[in-house]
């Protein structure tokens, strides 16, 4: 038996919106400690990784570990039937054929219940080793989304250069080229405002990435004020959005081969 309650449906809506463009169906692994999801896009270039800890839910029960295969488009459609402030409960019995999702209004005078069919999803999962990143950029997630949007008007690929001075995003295309530099701030405090950027660096590192994937990652911006971009030579770049007090979404993106 699985039962999990979140006080606000808006959080679950944002989580599903953040991954459904990259992954159409995914296995949700429920265990005593929480929920995990790992899924690659069809082309195996990007990996999405979601972790929600049990203590982030207002109620959480998982009697035995269970994997539920869910079509994310269907999940998203059902979640659209919830008001943002509704409490949401997800429930599945052992060997269930569907996931029960119910919403309760804040006044507790309206309760709706939906069922989404579960599916067997045969997908590859990968082992992600712990890595010592050479550079970690911590920046506003809104700023990240804006840069991705701006760069897409010019090119298809983006180069991220992290140095002690800051982080530079650049692109080029038929129409021309452009770059945006965010200077490193030693401390991120009130004075600097939430838009400031920090770069923790051991060695300068540079990666070239396909912009269309970053546009998908930027859909996680409503979940977190900040995003961290973690870079290491010759390995996928990791983008992390923290989900307040309960976990994170991480996206790993394989770099393009530098020409």
């Amino acid at each position: 038996m699985i039962e999990a309650v979140l006080p606000q449906a808006s959080l679950l809506k944002k989580i599903i919106e953040a991954i459904k463009e990259l992954v159409s169906e995914a296995n949700f692994d429920f265990s005593e400690t929480g929920i995990r999801l790992q899924a690659m896009d069809k082309s195996h270039i990007a990996l999405s990784f979601l972790h929600l800890r049990n203590d982030g839910f207002s109620e959480y029960r998982c009697d035995r570990s269970q994997t539920l295969g869910i079509n994310l488009e269907s999940f998203s459609k059902v979640l659209k039937c919830a008001a943002n402030d509704d409490q949401v409960q997800i429930k599945a019995t052992d060997k269930a054929e569907s996931l029960s999702i119910s919403f309760e209004s804040t006044a507790k005078d309206r309760v709706s219940e939906f069922n989404v069919k579960l599916m067997d999803i045969d997908i590859d999962s990968v082992d992600v080793p712990d890595m010592d990143y050479q550079a970690t950029v911590n920046m506003s997630s809104q700023e990240f989304a804006r840069i991705v949007r701006d760069m897409m008007t010019i090119g298809e690929a983006i180069t991220i250069d992290a140095t002690k001075q800051g982080v530079k995003f650049s692109t080029s295309g038929d129409a021309g080229e452009g770059n945006i530099l965010l200077r490193h701030r030693k401390t991120i405090d009130e004075e600097d405002g939430p838009s400031s950027t920090s770069v923790e660096i051991n060695e300068p590192v540079s990666h070239s990435l396909a912009l269309k994937f970053l546009a998908n990652f930027a859909k996680a911006a409503p979940l977190a004020d900040r995003v961290s971009i973690n870079l290491i030579e010759d390995a996928p770049v990791m983008f992390e959005f923290k989900i307040s007090d309960m976990g994170h979404i991480r996206f790993y993106l394989a770099p393009q081969i530098e020409e």
Binding site: S43, H44, L47, V126, V128
Partner: peptide, 14 residues
């Protein structure tokens, strides 16, 4: 466009 590597060329399958 530049050639694109796959996640699987970095991380092994479980």
């Amino acid at each position: 466009a530049a050639p694109q590597r796959s996640i699987l060329s970095f991380f092994g399958k479980k």
